[in-house]
Design a protein around this nucleic acid. Structure first.
Lengths: 259, 259
DNA sequence: AATCGTGTTGCATCCTCTGCAACGCTCATT
DNA sequence: AATGAGCGTTGCAGAGGATGCAACACGATT
């Protein structure tokens, strides 16, 4: 819509690939050097890009700050977080929270037991939308036409032999998920990793987020993980209630007691 | 420099405060509604903002993706990470890694022992530049004129009675840090929290990053924490060597053995 | 039904962005 | 030291695009 802004914003993903100098940017944008310079300066003033010692440009720190603030403003996340922690402490496995945005599934929180690191290595990364339990939960709640349209549009990468092969299979799976109110990913993304997930619903019953528990085969079998499903569902329901305002924020959360 | 881009980028921090509708955005930008609409549309096309169900705008997913990619491009972080983890496992305390960018100190990695959560709650947040050990390390390495200019420019908030009071005290502290090659923050930011830190240096000996170990008084006293200083310095030196390419990436890292 | 609040569109005007060309700077080469 | 290449930077004039206005559309509220 706005040419100037469009060009300026196009610089960001370009720099995300790695540092670039003025000429490289101008060439890839298809504009004159001076134009690229002025755009970069404006981006620089806003802290979106950073000019390193060798004069090349990199993405800047403001980007972190913005992403962080954006994450903090997601109130589902705020509410869910203590529940996720409690669940993690109860069973020790990795817990994810995800939302749907513009046909993309996005992790917005994660609690990992053994390895407390690289939270942000996940945030923003494209989720395997055709296989992830949280993705199934979020998409299953879409209106049928949208669901179908999206399913047709997607690619179906064969991460493993158990990955969802095509749109038809995916839609069938979504129907199942929709009916049963929970979802799994049994080795569909990584051969040795299983997940079980449950939806978080808003006041009107619509799915606003989804959470899942992930564990590698070597720790628990798929069957064992499934025995945790009731706990996962109770946790998700507890979050839903608190999010909907039908339950007060509890002072202490014990997932084993969440009814 | 570029008015249009300037306005568009100004929308982002505005939305970071929380969702806003078209009118609110236009008012705060000081432009006509239609102008704001077109800017928002362009931002939307680039995934920088997201339009939620109630038509209000929020920061979008692309921002996460970009921030994440920006982080991944910081190769210091990539190299340092396993060392930070090893250090954390060795002593159990919180480990931070930070860099200096545009007169700001920015955490780019963190390993926390007890509470594996909210990594990103720190990333991008303004670091207490006048008191944090990592900030002292990074600023101490600046050329003297720059160091002085920056010190004069800063505010010196009295987080605690032990906070650095003014530019003179700060410059003195930086001189000490520069001379001894390590830094501390003993209750200067939070009364009960102490830190010790050491610099990561590039090939030319310049400080490219800084790391620190933080622990609350109730866990270890400041004196006890200081006994870990040699370990911290060895870790930082190991990172420096690997970053400079003078040491091959080790297959397994044991901080107790890092010489 | 009417009114208000909001978002959206077409259009004429003027501003701002653009590309050009010239300049300055640094670095390498002879 | 001089020359030249490579790159970033700056003034300028022209044109294209962004802007604000006003009118319209749509839904909610009374």
């Amino acid at each position: 819509m706005s040419q100037t802004v469009d060009r300026a914003l196009s610089i960001l993903p370009l720099l995300a690939e790695g540092p670039a100098n003025l000429e490289q940017v101008s060439v890839r944008l298809g504009v004159h050097k001076s134009t690229a310079l002025r755009l970069l300066r404006t981006l620089h003033e806003h802290g979106m890009v950073y000019r390193q010692a060798d004069q090349r440009y990199r993405l800047g720190a403001r980007l972190f700050a913005l992403a962080q603030q954006a994450a903090e403003n997601l109130d589902v996340r705020e509410i869910a977080h203590p529940h996720l922690v409690a669940l993690n402490e109860a069973c020790g496995h990795t817990v994810h929270l995800a939302v749907l945005e513009e046909s993309e599934v996005l992790y917005i929180d994660k609690v990992e037991s053994r390895y407390p690191v690289r939270m942000y290595s996940r945030i923003g990364k494209p989720v395997a939308i055709t296989v992830a339990a949280v993705a199934k939960l979020l998409l299953a709640d879409l209106p049928a036409p949208e669901r179908r349209a999206l399913a047709e549009k997607l690619d179906y990468p064969r991460y493993t032999p158990r990955s969802t092969p095509d749109a038809a299979a995916f839609l069938a799976e979504l129907a199942t998920v929709r009916a049963q109110g929970w979802a799994t990913d049994l080795g569909g993304h990584e051969e040795s990793i299983n997940c079980v997930g449950a939806p978080v619903r808003g006041t009107d019953g619509h799915v606003v987020a989804a959470m899942s528990l992930s564990a590698p085969n070597v720790v628990v079998t798929a069957d064992e993980l499934l025995t945790l499903l009731p706990l996962v569902r109770r946790t998700a329901d507890a979050i839903s209630r608190e999010y909907s305002g039908t339950a007060p924020a509890p002072s202490a959360i014990d997932p084993a007691q969440e009814a």
